[in-house]
């Protein structure tokens, strides 16, 4: 049987979809709504508290896992959805979406390690 990377691609998609379903809504609520509304205090205060939170090794690992899986899930689903919107250049689309996911995963990894 021909070798295929489909199980890995779809496995990561499924893992990412599940993780996103559990954590992304509450994360958007916290970092996208409550943080800008000032629930963590003025910028100086939130700078201190957020730096303290992401310096925790467990938070680093969990946050990287979430970001990596969310980016991968989104990239793979977008690749399929773009086809549904009538764009048929799959090779180019795949490079673009996986490239985006890979780039931001790498940035997240390097940045988290720097704290």
């Amino acid at each position: 049987m021909a070798k295929s990377n489909k199980p890995i691609v779809w496995g990561l998609f499924a893992a990412g979809g599940t993780v996103c379903a559990f954590v992304i809504p509450v994360m958007i609520l916290i970092t996208g709504v409550l943080l800008p509304l000032g629930l963590f205090g003025p910028p100086e205060a939130s700078y201190e508290s957020m730096t303290r939170i992401v310096s925790n090794p467990v938070v680093k690992i969990v946050l990287f896992g979430i970001l990596f899986l969310a980016l991968w899930h989104a990239a793979h689903r977008l690749r399929i959805t773009v086809h549904d919107f009538g764009i048929r250049n799959d090779q180019l689309v795949a490079r673009a979406v996986y490239g985006f996911a890979g780039l931001f995963s790498l940035i997240a990894l390097v940045t988290l390690l720097s704290f």
Partner: peptide
């Protein structure tokens, strides 16, 4: 449902940018 991935992807990217800014 499928388009939800655009928002999830953009959010993950924006949170990553937030981490960079924090660093």
């Amino acid at each position: 449902r499928e388009v939800s991935c655009v928002f999830i992807g953009l959010y993950a990217a924006s949170l990553t940018v937030g981490l960079v800014r924090l660093a």
